[in-house]
Simulated assay, not measured.
Amino acid sequence: MKIFISGSNGFTGKYLKKVLIEKGYDVFCGSLRCNDPNEYYFNLLDIDSMNSAFKTIGKIDFFIHLAATSFTLASDYEIELNNKIGVKNLMRVLCKFYPNYNIFSSSASVYGNAKGALSEKSSLNPTTTYAKSKLFLEQEVLISGLKSIVVRPFNYTGIFQNDNFLIPKLIKNFKEKQDLIRLGNLDIKREFNDVDDVVRIYSDFLNRADLFTEKGSVFNIGSGKAYRIGDIVDLLCEISGHKINVIRDEKLIRSNESQELRCNIEKLASIGIEPCSGNINSLLKKMLNN
């Protein structure tokens, strides 16, 4: 079975590639940086690069789209360029080569400032450029006619994630035994799931061809367990035995930021796929000890 992963050298892509190879799948990868024989130059802004990769590989059974510009690491212009124009280009290429099944990574950020445990039927109200670009992706999938699943992962992290993201930033500061750290709003609540759980769920979908539809079946990926940022800091103090002082930095507070993002896991559980564990204590210990 041929599987193609776009964004294979990104945080999630590296984990997913490893898991799928270990399971015996024939894995091909698309990235801006090619290091292995089964990796192909794959640039969402370069249609020729995508055409070339698909022509060389031949018919693809599952295409998994992870490539995107991250909210934390990029300007609004970069997000618009890659996550909108790049997605338009990608859909043109996919509709030409027509993989049998497709998984597209959206984001729970499309829910915006909704309250409570958010289900796939909750209203969508994206408030950031990144979230709006992910809703754009979902709309493109809807009109493509490709047999697809759209996943909306809630926040997740793990070893090797860039320390521009919150949890790796905290871990880095605790490992270095820094005296203080600058953070934004300590009262917002987020899920912080383990990337290992997330890629396991991606892998589980490969065994469920019945779930893929031409309008893009939507599934949340999460645990249903959200944690206050300030409580995460306190937990790290407890686990590490190191006290760190937090300075509230107004520059790090986003006016349009959702106060809570928590997943309703009922749909995922109803199809027999185990949701993320949401074991924050275990995850933080693993990252601190790495």
Rank of each mutant, 00 (worst) to 15 (best):
M1W: 01
M1T: 05
I5W: 06
G7S: 09
S8V: 05
T12I: 10
L16I: 01
I21C: 12
Y25K: 02
F28E: 06
C34E: 09
D36H: 09
D36S: 15
L44K: 06
D48G: 01
S49Y: 09
S49H: 10
N51G: 05
N51F: 10
A53Q: 07
A53C: 07
K55F: 07
G58Q: 12
K59W: 02
F62A: 03
F63T: 09
F63V: 10
A68D: 13
S70M: 08
S70L: 14
L73R: 12
A74H: 15
E80I: 02
L81Y: 04
N82R: 00
N83T: 05
K84M: 14
I85Y: 14
I85K: 14
V87N: 11
R92S: 13
C95Q: 12
N100G: 07
N100H: 15
F104T: 11
S105H: 03
A108T: 00
K115S: 07
G116M: 09
G116S: 08
K121W: 03
S122C: 08
S122K: 01
Y130G: 03
A131E: 10
S133Y: 06
L135I: 10
L137Q: 15
Q139I: 03
E140F: 02
I143R: 14
L146A: 10
K147F: 08
V151H: 13
F154Q: 06
N155Q: 08
N155E: 07
N164I: 15
L170F: 11
I171L: 07
K172P: 00
N173I: 00
K175P: 00
E176G: 01
K177P: 00
L180G: 08
G184P: 02
N185Y: 04
L186V: 02
D187P: 00
F192M: 09
N193Q: 02
D194L: 03
V199P: 01
R200T: 13
I201E: 09
D204G: 01
A209G: 07
A209I: 06
D210C: 00
G216W: 00
V218S: 11
F219G: 15
N220K: 07
G230W: 06
I232W: 11
L236M: 15
L236N: 02
C237Q: 14
G241E: 11
H242I: 09
I244C: 05
V246Y: 02
V246L: 03
E250I: 13
I253R: 03
S255D: 15
E257A: 14
Q259L: 09
L261E: 13
L261N: 08
C263I: 01
L268D: 10
L268F: 06
E274L: 14
N281I: 06
L283Y: 11
N290T: 14
